[in-house]
């Protein structure tokens, strides 16, 4: 996957979470994914806490992008 593709995917995923296009993701946005992704509310909470590196309760594109890179470079997508 090229760098541009990663950036594009990051934006796509971010927008899937930030459906109101606020420019950030909050816990409520994350919980909305409960019905769409096979993750429990608790797991989504964990994901949010893991991605929210400064712990301010808002996920920015930068934080989201860092988490995605970590995932990509830590584990290969099959």
């Amino acid at each position: 996957m090229g760098q541009n593709t990663i950036l594009e995917k990051t934006r796509e995923f971010f927008q899937m979470c930030d459906i109101e296009n606020k420019g950030f993701i909050n816990r409520r946005d994350m919980q909305r994914l409960n019905g769409e992704l096979p993750l429990s509310a608790e797991e989504l909470e964990n994901v949010f806490d893991t991605l929210d590196s400064d712990g301010n309760g808002f996920l920015t594109l930068d934080e989201f992008s860092s988490g995605f890179s970590e995932f990509l470079f830590g584990r290969k997508i099959s």
Binding site: M16, L37, L44, D49, T50, S53, F71, L72, G74
Partner: peptide, 29 residues
């Protein structure tokens, strides 16, 4: 570092989350 600790503990959950997003996007089951 609490973030590192949380990151390690939730690595599987994070992978699950992004894999789910990828599956959703591509329409794979």
């Amino acid at each position: 570092d609490p973030n590192m600790k949380a990151g390690a503990a939730n690595e599987g959950v994070l992978a699950n989350f992004f894999n789910s997003l990828l599956s959703k996007k591509t329409g794979a089951p």
